[in-house]
């Protein structure tokens, strides 16, 4: 009981003390060194919003959640998309296609509309013609609990030395590097 009462007070003290530190003129004791180093340049990249359909069975690497509607079963390939299974004859069910949707983990369907998460966005996909599956609406950042965000890879700066560690975004990529005075604590020692 004592612990329970003390905990909030302790937490408040800690959070307030960090606030005071944050606003005081004297900077916080440890700071990342500012260096003349490489700084990433980001470009908008909405390629993650592209949803495509491919005919035939796709391999299963990380099988995910299941959903059934009518003669079709849907199973997510965690973070990659959705397998479509023809179940009109359950004894001979087969994967007939794959809907590529980055970040996908969840499925629900009403009529011809499939709802899933495209990374953090809630998307509605018209599946009346699977071959022409298309996103008909999108609610950005409706579902932040999804995993697999920021799977972009990036090229290291052109030479060795310190660089600012790139932040991962879904909707932008590192398209280049410029020299700047930055907090740089990533070190490229590979070249």
């Amino acid at each position: 009981m004592l612990n329970r009462r003390l905990l909030p007070i302790l937490l408040c003290t800690i959070s307030f003390s960090s606030c005071i530190d944050f606003f005081s003129k004297k900077p916080y004791a440890y700071q990342e060194p500012v260096r003349w180093a490489w700084k990433p340049v980001y470009s908008a990249d909405d390629s993650y919003t592209r949803v495509t359909y491919q005919n035939g069975a796709a391999p299963v690497k990380r099988a995910g959640k299941i959903y059934v509607k009518g003669n079709y079963i849907f199973q997510t390939e965690t973070g990659e998309g959705i397998h479509i299974i023809d179940n009109s004859n359950p004894a001979q069910s087969r994967r007939i296609g794959f809907l590529k949707v980055g970040g996908s983990e969840e499925i629900a369907i009403k009529g011809n509309y499939l709802y899933t998460n495209n990374y953090y966005d809630l998307v509605t996909i018209d599946i009346s013609q699977p071959g022409e599956a298309k996103v008909v609406s999108r609610s950005p950042n409706a579902f932040y609990a999804a995993s697999g965000a920021g799977n972009h890879t990036w090229e290291l700066p052109p030479d060795t030395g310190w660089y600012q560690c790139p932040t991962y975004y879904i909707d932008s990529v590192v398209s280049g590097w410029v020299k700047d005075s930055v907090y740089a604590y990533c070190l490229n020692a590979n070249q």
Binding site: E105, I109, F143
Partner: peptide
């Protein structure tokens, strides 16, 4: 609407889509 498994975070009841976030 169709039917999901017990691990689902999305579900549809009538005209409403419910999402755990």
């Amino acid at each position: 609407s169709g039917k999901g498994g017990s691990l689902a975070k999305f579900t549809i009841v009538g005209n409403y889509l419910y999402i755990l976030r």
